[in-house]
């Protein structure tokens, strides 16, 4: 029975294409990771295993630049993810538990606006906006821009999660004499936790990774890791860039993996 079923579903060659697809997706990352351990100062020749370039990232001539950039990146990412997750949680509560209302579609459009508008357009618009109100570009403008465009990334997993939670849990709480606020904090929020955590992590990574918008609104002298890396790469790929890239990509993969397992732990069942 099972084999017959499988036979109808599967097509020859699809598995091979899938594996090719994974190869294309992972090969560049794996290669860069390997070459980041290259002892050579040239990126072309392999001269044996070494942590030389990792040391260079922390102590080399560009280390000060990268330290400041990393500090900016991580502090902005933490603050932007916290703010956007809070805003997205409130918005999701209104959208999923607020009944039908006239502005629902408009609100949803507004929330998903940063996903629909091409990133470069958002970048230009944000730059123009700060310019027109006479706001000096720098750390703060990056933070504000990140909060705004991280909202949909936090919103999507949170609202998906909330839609998956039947409202009978909150009704049961209220039936058992909990006020609305208590039903929200004691029942809905704990059940929402996986969605909120994965929303936070996604917002965090999106903020950490952003290049285009940051590049437009950062102003002179303020760098985040992506803009610092881009500046470096413009003069050619150097081994220390590969080391820093490997660290950053490992960090992203760890975060996404955590998010994956958190969202898999379904505590409503």
């Amino acid at each position: 029975m099972a084999t017959v079923n499988n036979d109808i579903k599967t097509y020859k060659g699809f598995r091979a294409i899938t594996l090719l697809c994974l190869l294309v997706l992972y090969a560049p990352l794996v290669i860069v990771t390997i070459y980041s351990f290259n002892a050579s100062a040239s990126i072309t020749n392999w001269e044996g295993l070494s942590f030389r370039w990792y040391a260079d990232v922390f102590t080399g001539p560009e280390s000060d630049k990268f330290k400041v950039a990393a500090f900016n990146s991580f502090t902005i990412a933490i603050m932007a993810a916290t703010a956007s997750t809070t805003i997205a949680t409130l918005a999701a509560t209104a959208m999923v538990r607020g009944g039908k209302f006239k502005l629902r579609t408009v609100s949803f459009g507004l929330i998903s606006l940063p996903l629909m508008v091409p990133e470069i357009v958002t970048a230009v618009a944000t730059l123009i906006f700060f310019n027109s109100i006479g706001f000096t570009r720098g750390y703060l403008t990056i933070l504000v821009a990140h909060i705004a465009f991280c909202i949909p990334f936090a919103y999507l997993p949170i609202s998906a999660r909330m839609q998956g939670i039947e409202d009978s849990f909150e009704q049961a709480a209220m039936d058992l004499y909990a006020t609305k606020r208590q039903a929200f904090t004691k029942v809905l929020m704990p059940l929402m936790a996986p969605g909120i955590i994965s929303g936070f992590l996604l917002a965090f990574i999106v903020s950490l990774d952003d290049f285009i918008i940051t590049n437009f609104v950062k102003g002179a002298g303020v760098e985040t890791l992506p803009t610092a890396i881009f500046g470096s790469v413009k003069q050619g790929i150097k081994p220390n860039i590969m080391a820093i890239s490997t660290m950053l990509l490992s960090f992203s993969i760890v975060m996404v993996t955590i998010s994956y397992f958190v969202s898999k732990s379904d505590n409503t069942k």
Partner: peptide, 20 residues
């Protein structure tokens, strides 16, 4: 009255036991 002020309790169709 809101539900939490009514001295009645409900056994829900799907039980709605708090999973956490």
């Amino acid at each position: 009255l809101p539900p939490h002020q009514r001295p009645v309790n409900t056994v829900f169709q799907n039980y709605a036991l708090f999973p956490h």
